[in-house]
């Protein structure tokens, strides 16, 4: 009975090291000792079966994984860019209205001319700065190195926004 239990334990240890107490038993028991020798033979036979990737398989796999990760990152960046693109006209509209409301009454008649020469006007300077910031943010996301635009960079709110508004199930 004891030997049956020990042999069960020996099977579980196939390919592993024996504990001191088991070694002790094996030195005293012929049956368990020959049982273990058989398991070592099996182990030696099977160890040659260990899986090895060839060099070309390794290279191909590594490349495919890197391409796969880059592709997913670009997909996400494009969708994020889309969100920023949408923001630009909205931000510009808000700033335009805000700018007009801040004008002095005697300037109202000049609205049309100011609108045509916005770049030089003090009133439109903040707008220009903010739009250019948005544009630069958009451009940097659009053309950034993929490593700078990982999923991990997104906040929980941004991830929720993407989930709610776009079909990103395959990415997130």
């Amino acid at each position: 009975m004891k030997c049956a239990l020990i042999q069960q334990e020996l099977i579980e240890l196939t390919g592993q090291e024996l504990s001191h107490s088991l070694s002790q038993h094996l030195s005293e028991c012929c049956e368990c000792s020959s049982f273990w020798t058989e398991l070592i033979t099996l182990s030696d036979l099977l160890v040659t079966e260990n899986f090895e990737l060839s060099e070309s398989e390794s290279e191909r796999l590594l490349q495919n994984i890197e391409d796969g990760i880059a592709l997913r990152t670009i997909k996400l960046v494009n969708r994020r860019s889309f969100k920023l693109t949408q923001l630009i006209p909205i931000a510009a509209s808000i700033l335009l209205l805000f700018g007009i409301n801040r004008m002095k009454p005697d300037q109202n008649r000049q609205i049309t001319q100011i609108a045509e020469t916005t770049i030089e006007s003090d009133y439109y300077e903040p707008e220009e700065t903010m739009v250019s910031e948005l544009l630069s943010e958009y451009t940097s996301y659009r053309f950034a190195e993929p490593s700078e635009t990982l999923l991990g960079d997104l906040t929980d709110d941004e991830l929720a926004y993407l989930n709610d508004n776009f079909d990103v199930g395959d990415i997130l």
Binding site: F51, S58, L61, L62, I65
Partner: peptide
């Protein structure tokens, strides 16, 4: 990936 890929494929 380099460290683990063989084991994953195995």
């Amino acid at each position: 990936v380099k460290l683990v890929m063989n084991r994953v494929v195995a």
